[in-house]
């Protein structure tokens, strides 16, 4: 066995090597004073690194954290708070409008619901038109697709083997380029 790589040395010190690998390392250490010295050197630093003193936490730290957490507000209910807040804001806007314009509350409500009803009606009409248009276009697209498939079949039947080789090479080239691009993207995503 050649001299120890540092990663193997540290794995040995941390006790994470399997029995076979550990035995190989120990056999090498028994025969190599240089590696033995390197291991002993790092063992002392390894031991020192595990016993660093604790941070001195102020006695009131937890109290200070809790003081910053809004009183009585449950994190699970925060979404409910958002909905209630939005509805309250809507209601206040509505109330302000009624108070400023001096309009009758019932007539304003009727007008709002009337507008909403009209909007829904318009949306339904448009939806019907889109459905009709789809019913016309879809059969045309289906026929076009069928004809394209037929044409492609006739073309490939008449094409020689050279054509297929060229297609295969082009596809292979595209795949290689895609793999390189994907590799670069993944690589960039893993950067710390």
């Amino acid at each position: 066995m050649s001299c120890l790589r540092l990663d193997l040395l540290y794995e040995y010190l941390e006790g994470t090597l399997d029995a076979t690998r550990r035995a190989e390392v120990e056999a090498h250490l028994a025969a190599c004073p240089g590696c033995r010295a390197a291991v002993e050197e790092r063992r002392v630093i390894h031991l020192a690194s595990f016993g660093l003193p604790d941070f001195d936490v102020p006695a009131d730290f937890a109290r200070r954290v809790m003081a910053r957490i809004t009183a009585g507000r449950s994190p699970a209910l925060s979404w409910l708070g958002a909905i209630v807040g939005s509805l309250a804001a809507l209601f206040l806007t509505f109330l302000t409008y009624v108070l400023i314009t001096g309009q009758n509350l019932i007539s304003v409500l009727t007008s709002v619901f009337g507008t909403l009803g009209q909007g829904t009606q318009v949306a339904l009409v448009w939806l019907g038109k889109v459905a009709k248009l789809g019913a016309i276009i879809l059969p045309v697209l289906r026929d076009l697709g069928g004809n394209l498939v037929k044409a492609a079949g006739q073309f490939t039947a008449s094409a020689g083997p050279g054509f297929f080789v060229a297609i295969a090479v082009a596809l292979l080239l595209l795949m290689v380029l895609a793999a390189i691009g994907l590799g670069r993207r993944l690589f960039a995503g893993e950067r710390s």
């Binding site: 050649s2 120890l4 002993e40 050197e41 630093i45």
Partner: peptide, 13 residues
């Protein structure tokens, strides 16, 4: 890089 261990002198000791 993680190369072969350097057996030089023990600073830690």
């Amino acid at each position: 890089t993680l190369q072969v261990a350097d057996p030089r002198a023990g600073v830690a000791r």
